[in-house]
């Protein structure tokens, strides 16, 4: 009888420290990321819902101008690049940001791989590149926000609510949470909220990466005998990249 019990135990999780063959920390990171994915899904649902219930612009794309009456064409909004004032470069800057984030994801994979080999030098090197990539992305986003807030050289005329009073035919430059020159008020509000929430995730990811970088450099994980912490923050960092892939599609392409 006892032998049959031990035989079946081999196939089932018997209450050991590694359910699903993943350590507690990794498993909890996965479930945290799942719940975080729900939060981002909620934001993207809100975005898409408001967007597809707003008036669309059906005219020729060449003749498009900004108006508070309809949702803008994303290519016309995101066409600026630092140092190229007045030149239309649609989606180039956001393409650069996507490229930076994907590259920093790759360097993170390389850091995790070096950790598997107990290669302290490799972990430190690739973690540093990942941190640099994170800062590069955040700097790009800061510039993009600044440009978005200050706006273009051409004002959009619209009726806006300022301090509780409706002002007719107001010259709108740039964007704030109440109104913006690009489209309906919800357009900029959603932009700030969703890219901001993602940017905050990137920022926390960079902070976590810096902590792990110093721990690795100080030899903590060599003493501990494994580099699992690098894997855990790696999961978080890839998730940030994953969310950006979706934000990129929904905000800038569609």
């Amino acid at each position: 009888m006892a032998t049959t019990a031990t035989m079946s135990k081999a196939k089932l999780w018997g209450g050991g420290v590694e359910p699903l063959k993943a350590s507690y920390g990794k498993l909890m990171m996965w479930f945290f990321l799942l719940s975080d994915a729900f939060t981002f899904s909620g934001l993207l649902i809100t975005y898409a819902f408001l967007r597809w219930s707003a008036p669309a612009y059906n005219g020729a794309p060449e003749a498009f101008t900004f108006s508070t009456e309809y949702w803008p064409i994303p290519e016309k909004v995101y066409e600026a690049f630092p140092g190229f004032h007045g030149v239309e470069l649609p989606l180039v800057f956001v393409g650069l940001m996507t490229f930076i984030l994907i590259l920093s994801s790759v360097t993170m994979v390389l850091a995790v791989e070096a950790g598997h080999r107990m290669d302290k030098k490799g972990v430190v090197k690739w973690m540093l590149w990942t941190i640099i990539g994170g800062f590069a992305f955040l700097s790009c986003q800061a510039w993009e926000w600044s440009h978005f807030i200050h706006g273009t050289d051409t004002a959009t005329i619209g009726d806006v609510l300022i301090n509780g009073i409706w002002v007719n035919d107001y010259e709108i430059f740039g964007a704030n949470l109440s109104f913006n020159q690009y489209g309906p008020p919800a357009f900029a509000a959603l932009f700030f909220f969703i890219t901001g929430f993602h940017g905050f995730h990137v920022f926390s990811g960079v902070v976590l990466n810096i902590i792990i970088f110093f721990n690795a450099a100080n030899g903590l994980y060599d003493k501990r005998g494994h580099y699992e912490m690098v894997e855990k923050v790696g999961l978080y960092w890839h998730f940030v990249d994953l969310v950006w892939v979706f934000v990129f599609t929904f905000f800038y392409l569609i």
Partner: peptide, 20 residues
């Protein structure tokens, strides 16, 4: 929701713009 609220799409560009 768009249908129920009677929101219609815009066929041409708006003209209310000024240059700084």
């Amino acid at each position: 929701i768009k249908d129920a609220r009677g929101i219609v799409d815009v066929e041409g560009p708006a003209v209310e713009q000024v240059n700084e």
